[in-house]
Design a protein around this nucleic acid. Structure first.
Lengths: 339, 339
DNA sequence: TGAATCCATGTGCACGGTCACATCCGCGCC
DNA sequence: GGCGCGGATGTGACCGTGCACATGGATTCA
């Protein structure tokens, strides 16, 4: 009678304790891998847990430890390949470490939508934050709010370098640019990402650095919005001028739009114009022509994020300091200029 | 002295109560919009909350109410455009309703990885479940586990229709197929998705139904894996045969791969082969040639999911019964056959 | 042999909310 | 004037877990 478990209510540690003939604290110790538990006792408890289909109550645990075991992710453009791959790998890494992930998305880029997102995360009592929407104003909003939470960002920015886990975007952009220069191009445009995105800025910087290093004169980059749509319209405008033989696009989608516009203008890629993208989305190999691009290891990026964040949270020295080196993938969208 | 709030600890309702000169229960009532609170009292409490930067503790609330206010999402292929768009809209809809979203991803398709994912969600004490990985075996695993949680799935399958919120995949596939037939094609292949995906099956069914309805003889569909890569290799095989003038691909990525292979074989899309995709990913308009495809309203799908799920959870009649109608987007990848 | 130490386990309370129930007060009505 | 009633608020218990501390027995060592 006293042994019977109430129907319709999940069992708790006291139920387990009673059936195993120990105190609730012993059960708790088994749950937390406390060293000084006799093997026979542990086994008995585990058996009862199994019988009862016992699952620890996360809320109760969070309440008493005041640790939510949740990390927040602040993202934007979530449906794009890069962000979504990263989120996926963050989530699986966090899950392995026993953490939950709560994401908040920024749709509009205004200050208030950033605040809404951060407040949402704050309400979850997150213990750490990964920022995948590395816009300058996001950092501003964070320091204004002073959420006292360790955070990690995917990309470097002045003043936040402690937190940065980066694919070396600058190096990637230099690879792409160097490739074009080595092919013989001298009139190269850069179609950049949105102005306030840190990775857009880094890629732009890499482009300019390499151009300068090789003594090639540059024109001002065009600021885009990452979308194929924008690339297409930018390409239409550019094709009116035609004072270039190559374009380095800050991501693959815009590169796709560019190639579309170039064909529409009756020109050929790569014969008339060479195109390089960035990211190496899975589709890039099948674009027409297959796109030369810079490959980022998104899954690895996500894993490192979590590793570093958990490290910071536990006040450990945060292992990974090195950047992930991106890789140039040469495909058919680049060739020697045709003069 | 007694009024001072401990530093380093988040304020709780009792702190608020003390400073507002009321009982903790009154504070709780303010939090929960209880009707019988005098306006002046409410305002006083709200002011104190504001001063203290009070945030209700989700864990404590979850503990006492035994409601986690969390809904789970079981996904697969998360980094692809469709799933990630849906997840994004689910998340924002859930957030609006005061719910948290916890996602679990299935990478491998074996039974055990499904169980792992479901267990992960189960450990969160989710109150509802959205299934975006509508593989047949997922349903089997769910009924085996008998998680007593209401769930919703994106696509219909025999026996689970109560839970289905569907874009009418069959209708979409029929639209695509009819378009090809009306252009005059008679030898049409279908490149389907993985066998055990319910949406793949539905699109295949739509294809076959329409072909039958129009008395066009069909060949057995080819089973793919959704990737552009697969589309490419399938295309290479198909180009050896060349007994067709059109292919209906079950998604845009595979269509992209097909077009790549067709060009590699020296043939032209749409002159020699017409191609139709499915999904209308943002890049599809800029493929070469721009892809004729069937557009799904992913964000709406996500919103409905949440609406229906919350409805079911509150035992309300679950509003939306109608399917979302997909739309054919005709672009340059389809034309009359060239004989 | 007794004190110190360590191991294995138990006891009671705290965490921050909500719920059921109690209380107090003012008002209308017979 | 007494009674009932409902609005506004207070009191104490409880949710499931972990922590600090207590306990008792075995072992070690002076």
């Amino acid at each position: 009678m006293t042994d019977s478990v109430d129907r319709g209510k999940a069992p708790n540690i006291r139920d387990v304790a009673r059936l195993a003939g120990v105190s609730h604290q012993t059960v708790s110790r088994v749950l937390n891998d406390h060293p000084s538990i006799r093997d026979s006792t542990r086994q008995r408890v585990l058996d009862v847990m199994n019988d009862l289909q016992y699952r620890p109550n996360r809320a109760a645990r969070a309440l008493v430890t005041s640790r939510s075991r949740t990390i927040g992710v602040l993202a934007s453009q979530r449906s794009q390949y890069g962000p979504s791959s990263i989120i996926q790998s963050i989530e699986s890494a966090a899950q392995d470490a026993g953490y939950l992930v709560s994401t908040a998305n920024i749709t509009k880029t205004d200050e208030s939508s950033i605040l809404t997102a951060l407040n949402h995360l704050n309400a979850q009592a997150i213990e750490g934050l990964v920022i995948i929407a590395p816009q300058v104003r996001v950092f501003r909003a964070i320091s204004n709010l002073d959420l006292r939470v360790p955070f990690v960002t995917m990309n470097t920015s002045e003043g936040t370098d402690d937190h940065a886990i980066a694919v070396d975007q600058v190096a990637g952009a230099r690879l792409a640019t160097r490739h074009l220069i080595e092919l013989g191009h001298r009139n190269i445009y850069h179609l950049a990402g949105p102005q306030d995105w840190i990775e857009a800025e880094a890629r732009m910087r890499g482009f300019l650095e390499e151009m300068n290093a090789q003594d090639v004169p540059t024109t001002a980059p065009i600021l885009g919005d990452w979308s194929a749509e924008f690339g297409y319209y930018a390409g239409r405008e550019l094709m009116r001028v035609r004072d270039f033989t190559a374009i380095f696009s800050s991501n693959d989608q815009m590169a796709l739009g560019l190639m579309h516009a170039i064909r529409d203008a009756g020109q050929d890629v790569p014969h008339d114009v060479s195109i390089v993208g960035f990211d190496d989305i899975p589709e890039a190999a099948h674009f027409w022509p297959p796109l030369t691009t810079v490959k980022q290891d998104f899954p690895e990026l996500g894993r490192r994020c979590v590793a570093q964040l958990l490290g910071t949270m536990d006040d450990q020295a945060a292992g990974y300091t090195g950047r992930i080196q991106p890789e140039l993938i040469v495909r058919a969208s680049t060739a020697r200029p045709s003069f």
